[in-house]
């Protein structure tokens, strides 16, 4: 899903945040891809506890915290929204 693209200096990862994760962070954050290795690094930078994440997508697909993050990736992070 991340393809074989190489990490480039100064390139950005787009992180789209949803629901309560937007509080104090905004709707979209752009992070320097060169400073990130895996999905969990993004949460650390944004100070989002892993246990609060229900959906973590990289380019529309479910991702584990160990998955690599590459420049140009679009991430989407959601808390649980399961009430009825």
């Amino acid at each position: 899903m991340n393809g074989n693209r190489e990490k480039g200096m100064g390139d950005m990862v787009e992180v789209r945040l949803f629901a309560t994760f937007r509080e104090g962070r905004g709707k979209v954050c752009y992070l320097d891809a060169a400073k990130l290795v895996k999905a969990s690094d993004v949460l650390e930078v944004l100070r989002i506890p892993q246990e609060e994440v229900a959906i973590y997508l990289i380019n529309g697909r479910h991702s584990s915290m160990e998955d690599r993050v590459l420049d140009g990736d679009v991430l989407a992070v959601f808390p649980p929204v399961g009430g009825g």
Partner: peptide
């Protein structure tokens, strides 16, 4: 689903994902 001021809608079927595909877990 709803929570506070937030909500989502998704149709499940065909080649599309289900809630577990997206990462939802019964423990949540």
């Amino acid at each position: 689903g709803v929570s506070g001021f937030f909500g989502f809608v998704l149709c499940v079927g065909g080649d599309g994902p289900c809630l577990e595909c997206l990462g939802y877990d019964a423990a949540m």
